[in-house]
């Protein structure tokens, strides 16, 4: 169990690293394109690169976001709920979130197969859409794993209002 937990933590970190590298790559692409364009030599396919990398950026952070309770909640009633109810809600929310990420992974996987069949790719650089859809699937599954771990194993962070008062 501990080995599995460690492995999962590693995956979550790796996913965030990939997303972060993606973000820095996007910054570089935009700068090169802007400078190049104003000297008559834009970066060919800059928009393709930005759009496709964006998928990695957005989903790369999902697992760590779940791991760190980063998904936004309406916490208005939380201080009034008994602790056991709050604990139960955390469990339900984690399982629900994991289900959603698995559903996203599954449906996007189906779309990726369709993309391969239709030969879909980015317009200029011909980057196959399916690659990025498969990446989204993998990152989604890691996000689901992170939420499950969070719900089952780690104790929850108290509400900020309870913390300060």
């Amino acid at each position: 169990m501990r080995a599995l937990h460690k492995f999962a933590e590693g995956l979550i970190r790796l996913s965030a690293i990939i997303g972060t590298l993606g973000l820095l790559f996007v910054v570089a692409v935009i700068v090169v394109d802007v400078v190049g364009r104003n000297f008559g030599a834009p970066l060919y396919g800059a928009q393709d690169l930005v759009m496709m990398t964006m998928v990695i950026v957005v989903f790369g952070g999902m697992a760590l976001c779940g791991r760190e309770d980063g998904h936004i909640v309406v916490d208005i009633l939380e201080p009034r709920f008994p602790p056991r109810l709050n604990r139960a809600i955390d469990l339900v929310a984690g399982v629900l979130g994991a289900t959603i990420f698995v559903a996203i992974a599954y449906t996007v996987f189906k779309s990726a197969q369709l993309s391969q069949m239709l030969n879909l790719s980015s317009n200029l650089l011909r980057l196959p859409t399916a690659w990025f859809q498969y990446a989204l699937c993998a990152l989604s599954l890691i996000a689901a794993l992170a939420l499950i771990l969070r719900a089952l194993i780690t104790p929850r962070r108290p509400h900020p209002a309870q913390e300060t008062s």
Partner: peptide, 12 residues
Amino acid sequence: ARSSVVTTASVM
């Protein structure tokens, strides 16, 4: 940069 990616995830 890493924290930007996490915030991005929750907004997106």
